[in-house]
C-alpha cells in the first residue's frame, strides 16, 4: 500500500520525534527532557508532537516498544545456540538482556521508574513481557524433560521472582555505578540460588 503524501509526512515526523527523544532521554535524562526540546530537535512544532503523542510518557513507551525488535533479533540469534545445563541457559538469556539494556542505561532506568507512574491500562507495565516469560518457560520445560528441573516445581513463581530481581538489580547500576558485566555477575548468583529450589534432587 502506498501512503498518501500526508500520511507519509506524518509517519516521517513520528519517526524523527522518536529518534530525537531516544537520544535526549539517554543523554539529557527523561525528567529533564521537555516536549519543546524534542520538537526543536526534530524540526517540528510543539503542536505537531502533540497531534501524534499524548505526552512524554507515551513517547517513552513507544521508544521502549521499538527497541524490542532489536532485542528480540539478538535473542533469536543467541537462543538456538544455547547449550549446557538449564541454569546456564537461564543465565545466558538474562545476560543478553543486561548487555542490551545497559547500552542506554539512563533511558532504561527512567523507563522502569516511569512505568510505576503510568496510569493503568495505558501501557503494559515492565515485567509482563509475554515473550520473555515464554522464553524462560521453554527453558524450564526443557529442563524438566532433561530431568534437571523437578516436574512439580512452581515455574511461574520462579519466573516472577527471577524477573523481580532482574529489574531491581538495575538499582545497582544507578546507585553504585555497576556495569553490564557486574550486573550479570549478580544475576548469575541469584539464578543459581533460585535454581537450587527447583532443581531435581
Amino acid at each position: 500500500m502506498v501512503l498518501g503524501v500526508r500520511a507519509a509526512r506524518k509517519q516521517a515526523t513520528r519517526d524523527r520525534v522518536l529518534a530525537v527523544a531516544r537520544e535526549l532521554f539517554q543523554d539529557v535524562g527523561y525528567e529533564e527532557t521537555t516536549i519543546r526540546m524534542v520538537a526543536k530537535g526534530a524540526g517540528v512544532s510543539v503542536g505537531s508532537v502533540f497531534t501524534t503523542f499524548s505526552g512524554k510518557a507515551e513517547i517513552l513507551s513507544q521508544v521502549m516498544d521499538d527497541r524490542l525488535d532489536t532485542l528480540y533479533a539478538e535473542l533469536d540469534r543467541v537462543i538456538p545456540h544455547l547449550r549446557g545445563p538449564t541454569v546456564d541457559r537461564l543465565r545466558s538469556v538474562m545476560a543478553v538482556h543486561y548487555g542490551f539494556e545497559m547500552r542506554r542505561p539512563r533511558m532504561f532506568l527512567a523507563y522502569i521508574g516511569a512505568s510505576f507512574a503510568w496510569s493503568p491500562g495505558k501501557v503494559i507495565p515492565v515485567g509482563r513481557n509475554a515473550r520473555l516469560q515464554g522464553m524462560l518457560r521453554d527453558i524450564l520445560v526443557a529442563g524438566v524433560e532433561s530431568q534437571e528441573v523437578r516436574p512439580d516445581a512452581d515455574q511461574q513463581t520462579f519466573i516472577d521472582v527471577m524477573l523481580a530481581s532482574y529489574f531491581w538489580n538495575y538499582r545497582l547500576a544507578s546507585q553504585q555505578g555497576l556495569d553490564a558485566e557486574a550486573l550479570i555477575a549478580v544475576m548469575d548468583r541469584q539464578i543459581g540460588l533460585l535454581f537450587d529450589g527447583v532443581a531435581a534432587r
Binding site: 510505576f116 516472577d160 521472582v161 524477573l163 523481580a164 530481581s165 541469584q190
Partner: peptide, 15 residues
C-alpha cells in the same frame, strides 16, 4: 542475597 531478593519480589508485587 535472599533477603534482597525477597525485598525485590515484595516491591514488584505492588504492581
Amino acid at each position: 542475597l535472599i533477603a534482597e531478593m525477597l525485598w525485590d519480589s515484595y516491591v514488584a508485587n505492588y504492581r
